[in-house]
Each structure stands twice: as C-alpha cells, then as structure tokens.
Amino acid sequence: MATQTQETQDVQAHGDGHGHHERLQHHFISLDQQFSSAKLGMWLFLVTELLLFSGMFVAYAVYMQWYPEAFAVASEALDWKMGFANTIVLLASSLTVALSIHFIQKGNTKAMITSLSATLGLAVVFLIVKYFEYTDKFSHGIYPGEAFNPTGSYAYLDVPNAVQYFSIYYVMTGIHAVHVIVGMLVFAWLIYRALRHHFSPEWYTPVELGGLYWHFVDLVWIFLFPLLYLL
C-alpha cells in the first residue's frame, strides 16, 4: 500500500515509479493493485476463450443429438489410448506449471525454470502424439469436410454424417493445438525471462498469467477427451 507521501511524489514525478518497485507501472498505486488487475484481466480473457470454444461444443451437441449412430461409429475410429496418454501428459504439465508458481513464490528461480522447461517438454510430447494421430487419419483419407473419403481399415466410416464428426474433431482439436503452440511460445518466453532473473517473489505476474492460460488449455482437453474419444 502506498502512503500519501509516496502517492504525492508519484504524481509529481509524473509516475516514473520513483520510490516504487521497478515493475510498478505509473498508473497503478501498488504492486498488489497491478497484480490483481492483471489477474482479473487474464480471467476475463479466459472467459472469452471459454465462449470461443463453446461454439464448437454447441456444434458437437447439436450433431451428436441429431446423428448419435454416426457419432458412435465415428468416435470408435479415435484411439482412446492416444487420447488417454495425452490427457495424462497435459495434466502433468498443469502440475508442473502450478509447481513453477509455487517455486517462484518461494524465491527458487532455478526450480521454477526446471518446472517451466518440463511443461514445455510435455507440451511437445502432446503435439507429437497429436501428430501421429492426425497423420494416421490423413493417410486413410479421413479429412475434414468434402475431402472426407475413408479407406482401408477405416472404410467402415463411410456413413452419412460421420464427416460432421470429423470436421468437429479436427476443428476442436486443431484450435486446441493452436492454443498449445501459443502456450509453448509463452513458456519459451517465460524461461528466457526467468534466466535473466526478471522474476521475484514480489513480481512474477507473467508466470502467473501464463500458468492460468495453460491450465485453461488443460481444462478444454479434459472435456474434449471423453466427448471425442470415449463416447
């Protein structure tokens, strides 16, 4: 909390942060205010992400209710083991992110960098598994939309409206994968900054926000996995 004297100084100096933490921006009074603002902003951003994905879930619900048989047949084509493995990978990465925040709060930059790197690694693993899933499907002619033409061991998928299932599958997992890639860029950037000792127990806002974002990516997958792979 800033005292009156500090506040006046701040105003007089036109907010160059005189007498304050170097990370305090001029229009905030305290680091607390700045941190909780950033966090509320992040939560609101996650709300927008939620609504973005909700469109896909609506499409899924509608077509699932119209064509349950086609969806039942189509979802069998997805290998639940791959989905399960990826679920574990993402859950583990969520744990490492939560740990990295735990470590920086205790001032342990080294451990934070380790667990951020682990998160990055797990994200790579997730995408590799996804890559194998996609290429397997593509090689059998399972494309989203018009090009959908299942062959070989997947020929049984040639039923009406299976194409809707796979369109939804590709769009949902595709958008999700884009989010994973963005998350990887975020973590690379966080690691870079951590290596330069930008973070401290007093100020680690980017790590906190990156963590929130990554947990959200995990949350989406928690719902995608049973809906797409198991039902």
């Binding site: 992110v97 939560a98 963590g211 947990h215 995990d218 949350l219 928690i222 049973p226 809906l227 198991l230």
Partner: peptide, 22 residues
C-alpha cells in the same frame, strides 16, 4: 453415458480451477 462422462470431467475441471488455478 454422456452425463456420467461430463460429471467426471467437470469434477476434474473443478479440481484444476480450484487448486491449480488457485
């Protein structure tokens, strides 16, 4: 089947939101 799967997923989501996302 769907409600059960969604219930389990929601429980997981709740755990993530409450503890991991603090």
């Amino acid at each position: 089947e769907i409600p059960v799967a969604l219930a389990i997923a929601s429980t997981k989501a709740l755990l993530v939101v409450i503890f991991f996302m603090a």
